Amino acid sequence: IRCIGVSNRDFVEGMSGGTWVDVVLEHGGCVTVMAQDKPTVDIELVTTTVSNMAEVRSYCYEASISDMASDSRCPTQGEAYLDKQSDTQYVCKRTLVDRGWGNGCGLFGKGSLVTCAKFTCSKKMTGKSIQPENLEYRIMLSVHGSQHSGMIVNDTGYETDENRAKVEVTPNSPRAEATLGGFGSLGLDCEPRTGLDFSDLYYLTMNNKHWLVHKEWFHDIPLPWHAGADTGTPHWNNKEALVEFKDAHAKRQTVVVLGSQEGAVHTALAGALEAEMDGAKGKLFSGHLKCRLKMDKLRLKGVSYSLCTAAFTFTKVPAETLHGTVTVEVQYAGTDGPCKIPVQMAVDMQTLTPVGRLITANPVITESTENSKMMLELDPPFGDSYIVIGVGDKKITHHWHRSGSTIGKAFEATVRGAKRMAVLGDTAWDFGSVGGVFNSLGKGIHQIFGAAFKSLFGGMSWFSQILIGTLLVWLGLNTKNGSISLTCLALGGVMIFLSTAVSA
């Protein structure tokens, strides 16, 4: 259960009878995928790494000078000259100064003066180019299975845990398959586009800190620079940016070097996208990844198990997540596992009318040892309800109150669905055939309105939902006002479609 501690969480529900669903994975976010007769899966884009970055340009932001020398000439005696002028490691300046009897010249006039100092770069920052084909995306998957609280967001041991898996995709191999043991396998067909235009970005490294910066900004930095990788004795261009020549006297000129420019660069980098280094690879934390999940090989585990009949206890007080759902960790005293956990939410304890829904599909106890633990997640209705676990006299209950409203949740879900469709863009549509167009249209309606429909009408039977949709269509056909007619027709059509397409 990876997503319960992530604030940016998206719930995606598969269409009834569908074998695939489109998701948008982004750094700092987590996606929970639910479908009829399929286990619930949490998917998170953990890291995006980039390798084989080529150094484009380096800037010196802290330097020192040494070996200063000057040469001067009297008027009419030609130009002052130093051998160091031809050495690229030196920074030199030529000027004219007033000369006369007082400073060793027989004539009054302008004399030539040249001053040089050896330039040494102490600290530099480097910009590297990123090729999209060198990106690698690491995705962690977790099935809502027989897990306890100690396994949440624990990325170790996934090789031997059938509840978890790690997959890596690249532009050259965008397809992967996550093996989930008894739950089958989940196929991923990803489109490795981060949403960032790397043709316009460089990877900047300064003092063990890293950013993504725009090329134009990078090339306009007014500091000494050299092109390409460091060859040991780089040729620094624009050395004068960190060196200041003071007022010249008759035979000498003082040279000083400016202080470190790291603070000024940090100020200019305010708002830039931060990154990290992992050995020789860069780690990015921006952008998104679009994936199509193929769920035809994914299956529920323990459908044929019998119900657990022994007593359950709450190991922890049920807690609310950031998303309005409830996490419950229970301990089973029996030894008759594997068995299914009898769990439901009810409005009252007399009729036990089921409300809400299970995020953890078909929760089971897989071990036959005593005191096995299991964590599950529920989506309670707004208002008061009861969490009921167990059967008969051994069942345990917990009162729950959820604040908020169904309308607010439906609106929030619609906005999130619209954002998801905007990110998917043209990849969500198939114009290759008439059937493809209608299929894409259905998927689009489901992406945007599916979660809201589930919130508003999830407790009704599909037949009642179709009746309401048919009534809206009838009202649309018999209303003389054009805008009201079109609105009723659209709402009725969407409702009829979703009542037959969205899983219960």
Rank of each mutant, 00 (worst) to 15 (best):
C3W: 07
S7V: 00
R9A: 10
D10A: 02
E13H: 06
G17Y: 05
V24R: 03
E26V: 09
G28I: 00
Q36L: 02
V41A: 08
L45D: 11
T49L: 03
S51C: 09
N52S: 12
N52P: 00
M53F: 07
A54D: 01
S58Y: 04
Y59A: 04
Y61V: 13
S66W: 10
S70M: 08
D87L: 01
N103T: 04
F108S: 11
S112I: 01
S112Y: 04
L113F: 01
L113R: 00
K118C: 02
S122T: 07
K124I: 14
G127Q: 04
K128Q: 14
I130P: 12
P132Q: 14
I139T: 07
I139N: 02
I139S: 00
N154L: 02
D155V: 09
T156A: 14
Y158V: 04
T160E: 04
D161P: 04
D161S: 13
R164E: 12
E168A: 02
A176S: 01
A178H: 04
F183T: 05
G187R: 00
D189W: 11
D189H: 07
C190S: 11
R193S: 10
G195E: 03
D197C: 07
F198M: 09
S199N: 02
D200I: 01
D200Y: 10
L201M: 12
Y202K: 07
Y203N: 12
T205Q: 12
M206E: 05
N207R: 01
H210S: 01
E216P: 04
E216Y: 06
F218Q: 07
H219F: 15
P224M: 12
W225K: 06
D230W: 13
G232R: 15
N237C: 02
N237Y: 14
A241S: 14
V243F: 08
F245D: 07
H249A: 08
Q253W: 15
T254F: 12
T254S: 15
V255E: 01
V257L: 13
L258A: 13
A264K: 11
T267W: 05
T267I: 12
A268F: 13
L273I: 12
A275K: 01
D278Q: 14
A280I: 01
F285W: 15
S286C: 12
S286N: 02
G287P: 00
G287Q: 01
G287T: 15
H288F: 06
L289F: 08
R292A: 01
M295Q: 06
R299L: 01
T309S: 11
A311V: 04
T313W: 06
T315G: 04
K316Y: 04
A319K: 04
A319N: 04
H323F: 10
V326L: 15
T327N: 04
E329S: 08
Q331A: 09
A333S: 14
C339W: 10
V343E: 01
V347A: 06
M349A: 14
T351N: 14
T353Y: 02
R357N: 06
L358M: 01
V364T: 00
I365C: 04
I365E: 03
E370I: 04
E370H: 12
N371D: 12
P380G: 01
P380S: 12
P381H: 05
P381N: 05
I387T: 10
I387S: 08
G392Q: 15
K394L: 08
T397I: 15
S403T: 14
S405Q: 07
T406Q: 12
K409R: 15
F411L: 10
E412C: 09
A413D: 00
A413I: 01
A418V: 14
M421F: 13
M421H: 12
A422E: 00
V423G: 00
L424Y: 05
T427W: 10
V434S: 01
V434F: 15
G435Q: 13
G435M: 13
S440A: 07
K443P: 06
I448S: 08
F453T: 13
S455R: 12
F457T: 09
F463C: 12
I466D: 09
I466P: 10
G469N: 02
L472W: 05
T479K: 10
K480E: 12
K480N: 14
S483A: 09
I484Q: 10
S485G: 13
G492N: 10
V494A: 14
A501R: 01
